[in-house]
Structure formats: C-alpha cells, structure tokens
C-alpha cells in the first residue's frame, strides 16, 4: 500500500502546485522583483497562506496543452474585441428594443473546473452571462443579448458548447477529450 500512499501525496502536491505557482507569480509581480530570494520568500508565504486559508481542492483534468492554451488566449482576445464592438453597436442602434433570451446550455463535461471555466469565459465575452448553474446535470442557464429568434438561440447554445470544446482541448480530462473526439467524428460522418 506504500506505493499508492505515495501516489496520493504526489497527486495532492500536484493539485496544489498551480495555486502555489500563481501566488508566487502574483507576489513577484507586485514587488516587480523576480530575483530568486524574493521568489523563495514568496513561496514560503504562499504555502503559509494556502494552508491557513484552506480552500477546497480543485479537481484538475490532469493535462494541459500549452499550444492549445496560447491559441485559446488569442481566440479569446479576438472574440472579446468583436463582441465588445457588437454590444456597443447594439447599445447605440437597438437600445431599448433589444430582445434577449435565457438559454439552457447542457455541457458535456461533469468537471467542476470546466464548468466554472466555461461560465467564466462566456461571461467575459460581452453579450452573455451566467444566471444560474445546475451542477447536478452540468447545465448553465445563460442570459444572452440579441437573441430574438429560435435560430439565434440555437446559435448561442452552439457557441457556448464550442467554448467548452475549446477548453476541453486545453485542459479537459482524457475521458472528456476522447468523448469530444468521438463526437467530432460522428459529426463528420453525418454531414455529407
């Protein structure tokens, strides 16, 4: 049993690592000093802070595709820019005549992290915001701007599921990724 115990300890450490790394980066950024001494002291403080103010551990997917993450960041910036201008346009042109919708979006993954990340990303992109979350069925209820017809509602739903697919490719678990690949393959077979 010693091996599995050690494995559990390693996994716990690995799960804490992103939080510690983030805290150390924030420490360095705030001091504007990334010298080894300052970072070491920052690490001490982050270990202390994260043990005193204990947060429930986040279940990570166990993989991170850096290339996909960079692509995702660029796509996110583009999407935010386009949507910001869109909302500005709606504010000027449509104003009080805007027609919105609250759309139930079922997600593929049951992971809390992916649900949170998807909700965050879609909330940051102007024009949509999460009103309610059903964790049991991993459904997001999203308030979307300018969705007057059923077609546009369907478009909103597909857009959000696309965000989730992108996030799964960046950091989803292997099982989620495999399910996504199967789904994509099925779609390719259906379309012609």
């Amino acid at each position: 049993m010693r091996g599995s115990d050690q494995g559990a300890i390693w996994r716990a450490l690995l799960n804490r690592l992103p939080l510690l790394a983030w805290l150390v980066v924030v420490w360095g950024a705030l001091w504007q000093d990334f010298s080894p001494g300052n970072l070491a002291f920052g690490l001490l403080i982050s270990v202390g802070v994260s043990s005193v103010f204990y947060l429930p551990p986040v279940e990570l997917g166990g993989r991170l595709n850096v290339l996909r993450a960079v692509v995702f960041a660029l796509w996110f910036l583009k999407e935010v820019s386009v949507a910001s201008i869109e909302v500005f346009y709606w504010a000027v042109v449509k104003g009080p005549r805007i027609s919105n919708a609250i759309v139930a979006v079922p997600l593929r993954s049951r992971s809390d992290l992916l649900m949170t990340a998807t909700g965050h990303v879609l909330s940051l992109i102007p024009g949509s915001l999460v009103v309610e979350v059903d964790r049991g069925t991993s459904t997001l209820y999203v308030h979307a701007m300018n969705a007057p017809t059923p077609e546009s509602v369907e478009k909103v739903r597909r857009g959000i599921q696309d965000i989730e697919a992108r996030l799964i490719r960046v950091m989803g678990s292997r099982a989620d990724l495999a399910a996504l690949k199967r789904e994509a393959a099925a779609n390719v077979k259906e379309s012609p």
Binding site: A83, S84, A91, N100, I125, P126, L129
Partner: peptide, 13 residues
C-alpha cells in the same frame, strides 16, 4: 440584465 452586460463587459477589453 442587459445593463449588466453593458456595465461590466466592455471593461474587459
């Protein structure tokens, strides 16, 4: 709700 969109989101960009 629509005002929430306008008030919070454009600030991201």
């Amino acid at each position: 709700m629509s005002r929430m969109h306008a008030a919070t989101k454009p600030q991201v960009l």
